[in-house]
Amino acid sequence: MTSSQLPIYIIDAFTKELFKGNQAAVVPLEHWLSESMMQSIASENNLSETAFFVKNPEGVFEIRWFSPLKEIDFCGHATLASAYVIFNHLGEKGILSFWAKAVDTIEVHEREKGLIEMSFPNRAPERVTESPEALRTGLSIAPLEFYKNQQAYFAVYVSEDDVKNVVPNLEKLTTLAPLDVVVTAPSKEYDFVSRYFWPANGGVEDPVTGSIHAGLAPFWAKRLGKQSLVALQASKRSGVLYCHVSEERVFISGACVEYLKGTIGIRA
Rank of each mutant, 00 (worst) to 15 (best):
T79Y: 05
T79H: 04
L80K: 07
I86C: 04
F87E: 09
F87Q: 07
F87C: 08
N88H: 15
N88K: 15
N88M: 15
H89A: 15
H89K: 15
L90T: 02
L90M: 14
G94V: 11
G94M: 14
S97R: 12
A100E: 05
A100S: 11
A100M: 07
A102E: 10
D104R: 10
D104E: 14
V108Y: 03
H109F: 11
H109L: 14
E110K: 07
R111Q: 15
E112H: 13
E112P: 07
G114D: 08
L115C: 07
E117K: 09
E117H: 03
E117W: 02
E117L: 05
M118E: 04
F120M: 01
F120S: 01
F120E: 01
P121C: 11
P121N: 10
N122H: 12
N122D: 12
A124N: 05
A124R: 08
A124D: 03
P125C: 10
P125G: 08
P125D: 10
E126F: 06
R127P: 04
V128R: 02
V128A: 09
T129N: 12
T129W: 10
E130C: 09
E130N: 13
S131A: 13
S131R: 02
S131I: 02
P132G: 04
P132A: 05
E133V: 08
L135I: 04
R136G: 00
T137S: 14
G138Y: 00
L139R: 01
L139Y: 01
L139C: 02
A142C: 12
A142N: 08
P143N: 08
L144M: 12
F146S: 00
F146G: 00
Y147A: 02
Y147W: 12
N149C: 07
N149Q: 11
Q151R: 05
Q151L: 14
A152Y: 04
A152L: 08
A152E: 04
Y153G: 00
F154C: 06
A155F: 00
V156S: 01
Y157V: 05
Y157M: 07
S159D: 14
E160Q: 11
E160C: 02
D161H: 08
D161C: 04
D161T: 11
